[in-house]
Simulated scan of single mutants.
Amino acid sequence: MRILLAEDQPDLLDVTVKRLRAEGFGVDGCADGQQALDYLDATDYDLVILDIMMPKVDGLTVLRTLRSRKNPVPVLLLTARDAISDRVEGLDAGADDYLTKPFDFSELTARVRALLRRNSTEKSDLLQAGDLVMELSTHRVTRDGREISLSTREFALLESLLRHKGAILSRAQLENQVWDYGFEGGSNIVDVYIRYLRKKIDDPFEKKLIHTVRGTGYTLRDEP
């Protein structure tokens, strides 16, 4: 899942980006509304988190611009202003949720996951393919009842495959969903992590779930 966070307080931006990345999200961070619009022009995001009070272009203007372009991406507004009228203005502008500062990080991640579920065809906390089960809120993964330990990136990659079960995803699509602009890796990073995943969720089992589609990418399916 790819998230854009626009926040003009450098310390808060830095720590929130790091915490969201630790949760397995691909996150791009920027410090003003104009940068946010530039990022949104270049990339499709699964969720946008906007501070309202930002330089150059404020968060509400960014939000209204998105909605005027018919962009339905879920938007979570962050603000230090907690008056009811401020919340109403943000929601009327097209926001999907609203969180006042200071906030607890666990509440932020809970709201992020709720918005992602709301925007997905998969509404449950569980993603499943055959005997492979992923519990999103706890980051617990099991296959045939056996718990499988995954790194943050492995979990994020598997989540993307499970959310698009049966679909063929190109390497570029997977990289775009799991990694962010700040990532410095090799051109074969997706292939490397697919090998890591296969060792853990496929190699110990007779039935294989992750399949290579030559010249295209990868797919996860539980049908024969």
Rank of each mutant, 00 (worst) to 15 (best):
F155K: 01
G90Y: 07
H164M: 05
T138D: 12
D46R: 15
V75R: 03
G59L: 02
L162E: 02
D125N: 13
V112N: 09
I84A: 14
V48H: 13
D86I: 01
V112E: 07
F155V: 06
L91A: 10
D86Y: 11
N71R: 15
T61D: 15
L50A: 06
L78E: 05
I148E: 02
S170Q: 09
I168M: 07
S149Q: 14
H139V: 05
I52M: 13
H139M: 04
M53A: 15
S124D: 15
K101H: 01
A114C: 02
M54R: 07
L150V: 08
V141M: 02
A95W: 10
F105K: 10
V48N: 14
R163G: 08
T138V: 07
L77A: 13
R140P: 00
S137C: 06
Q128F: 00
I49R: 11
F155D: 07
K56N: 14
R143F: 06
V75P: 07
R163S: 07
R111M: 09
T100K: 03
R64D: 02
L91Q: 09
F103Q: 04
G33V: 05
D41W: 03
T65M: 07
L132I: 10
A93F: 05
P55D: 12
I49Q: 09
L162I: 08
V75H: 12
L78F: 11
L127V: 04
M134S: 08
L126E: 15
R87S: 00
L162Y: 01
E147S: 10
L76Q: 11
L169Y: 08
E159N: 12
R163W: 03
A42F: 04
D44E: 14
L132D: 11
Q34W: 13
I49P: 10
T138Y: 08
F155T: 01
L157D: 05
F155S: 01
D58F: 14
G130N: 14
P74K: 08
L63G: 10
L132P: 04
L78K: 06
A110E: 05
M53L: 02
G59E: 05
L40G: 04
A42V: 01
Q34N: 12
T121E: 10
T138W: 03
L76D: 09
A83S: 07
E107M: 12
D82H: 06
M53Y: 06
K165G: 13
V62N: 05
D144L: 08
L162V: 05
M134T: 05
G130R: 00
R113G: 01
E89L: 05
K165R: 14
T79H: 06
S151N: 09
A31E: 09
V73M: 11
L126D: 08
R146H: 12
D38A: 15
P102R: 12
T79D: 07
P74G: 10
T109P: 01
S124H: 11
L37A: 07
A31G: 15
Q34E: 14
L60F: 11
A114I: 01
H164Y: 04
L66S: 03
R146S: 06
R69Q: 14
Q34P: 03
S120M: 03
L77E: 07
S85F: 05
P102W: 08
E147P: 02
S124Q: 12
A83N: 12
A93C: 13
D96Y: 13
S137W: 00
Q128N: 08
D41R: 14
S85D: 14
A42D: 15
A167F: 02
R67K: 15
E154T: 06
